[in-house]
Design a protein around this nucleic acid. Structure first.
Lengths: 191, 191
DNA sequence: GTTCTACCTTTGCGCAAGCAACTATACGCA
DNA sequence: TGCGTATAGTTGCTTGCGCAAAGGTAGAAC
C-alpha cells in the first residue's frame, strides 16, 4: 500500500468535510435530543414547515430527506403519534397521502429554532468572515446542484393541491442538471 | 410560526451543507457497496491504514469514527470475520486491544481508493476552481478544529504505553496538507 | 369494460448501532 | 495488602431504517 494514495489531498478534503459534518451533527443532535426529537424528525418538521401549505406527499418527503419511502412511513407514524404532524388524504390521487405539520408541530419548531440557530451561528456561520462564508456557500451550492439536483422536488411548485398527480417532474434522476427554482436558492440571497 | 424564522439565511447555510453531505455520501456509499463495504467499514479501514503501525485501540477508533465503543466492537467483529482487520492484544494494558489492518484489508483499500478518489474529484474537488477550493478547505479546517477538537483523540491520551512505544506523531487524518500549526495537532501535544 | 403497466404507501424481515449492564484490568490510597 | 474507583471492551436488549413484497389506485391501450 503506497502512502501516496493515502495522503492524497483529495482524501484530506473529503475527510475534512465529513468530519465537519459529524461534528456539527453531533452538536445539533444533542440540542434536538433535549427537545425529544431526532435529527431526522427535525428535518421532517423543517421540510414540511417550508413547503407550500406546510405539507408534502410521502414520496416527496422521502426524496427530500435521504430516507426511503418506508423510512418516511415510519417517521411519520411516530410523529403522527406524537401529534407533530398528521396524514391527509390527497383529493386528486387516492394513492397518495400528505404529511402535514400540525399547530403543535409548528410550536415545537418555534421552541427549537432559536437555539438551533444559535448553534449554527456558534459553530458554523459565525466562525467565518463574511466573504469567506459567501465563497463557501457558493461552493456548496455548486456541488449541491450537481450532486442532488432533485432535492427540492415536491416543494418547488407553488400551487396548493398542485400538479401533484401530473408527475411534475421525474426528479430522482441521477444527473438531471435540472434548473428548477429551488426553495433553498431563494433563501440564501442575502447571506 | 413566523416565516422569518424559517427563512433565516443560517438555515439555508446549514441546509446546503447537509444536502451536500447527503449527496456525496450517497455516491460514495454506492461505490463502496459495489466492493461489499459500508461507509463505516471504509472509514475504519482508512483510519487504521493512516495510523501509526496501521493500528488503533478500540476506544480510539471509536472516538475517531463517531461510533460508540459497542459499535466499534461489532464493526471490528464483522471486519475481522472478513479478514480485513485483526485484533491484537496490547502488551502494556491488558484491558486494551488493538484493531490492526491486515494485508488483505490494505489490498482492499488499494482496490477501492482509485475509484473513490475519482468520485471525490468528480463531485467535489473537481467542481471548484483551485482558489475557491482552497478557501473552502480553509473554512472547513476552521470549523473542524472548533467543532471536533478531539478528532485526533487516539493520540491524545498521553499514557505510558502509547507515549512510550512508537506513536511517532499524532498521525491522524485529513490535514496532511497543513504543514505547520494545525490546531488539532497542537492540541494533541499539549493535552 | 378489461387488462396492463406504473405508482404510492405500508408491512415483514433483517441488520446496524446505541444504551446500559457486566467483566476484567489498572491504578490510587490507606 | 486490600479496597475503591476509573477505564477497556463485550453483550443483551431495543430501536431506526432499508429492501423487497404486498395491497391499493391511476391511467392508457384495446
Amino acid at each position: 500500500m503506497s502512502d501516496d494514495l493515502l495522503d492524497d489531498p483529495r482524501l484530506t478534503a473529503v475527510g475534512l468535510f465529513f468530519e465537519v459534518h459529524t461534528g456539527l451533527n453531533a452538536r445539533f443532535a444533542a440540542q434536538l435530543c433535549e427537545h425529544g426529537l431526532s435529527p431526522v424528525e427535525f428535518e421532517v418538521l423543517m421540510r414540511l414547515a417550508r413547503s407550500p401549505d406546510r405539507q408534502l406527499r410521502m414520496t416527496d418527503l422521502a426524496s427530500q430527506t435521504s430516507l426511503s419511502t418506508s423510512g418516511v412511513t415510519r417517521v411519520v407514524d411516530r410523529m403522527e403519534r406524537d401529534r407533530y404532524i398528521a396524514r391527509r388524504a390527497c383529493s386528486s390521487d387516492r394513492r397518495s397521502s400528505y404529511a402535514v405539520i400540525t399547530q403543535s408541530g409548528l410550536t415545537k419548531l418555534e421552541q427549537i429554532l432559536p437555539g438551533h440557530l444559535a448553534l449554527v451561528e456558534e459553530w458554523f456561520t459565525g466562525r467565518l468572515p463574511g466573504d469567506q462564508l459567501a465563497t463557501v456557500l457558493d461552493a456548496l451550492r455548486t456541488i449541491r446542484d450537481a450532486v442532488n439536483p432533485g432535492a427540492t422536488a415536491g416543494s418547488s411548485l407553488g400551487d396548493s393541491d398542485r400538479a401533484s398527480h401530473s408527475r411534475p417532474r421525474p426528479e430522482e434522476q441521477s444527473d438531471g442538471a435540472e434548473p428548477s427554482g429551488d426553495a433553498a436558492e431563494r433563501l440564501v440571497v442575502e447571506v
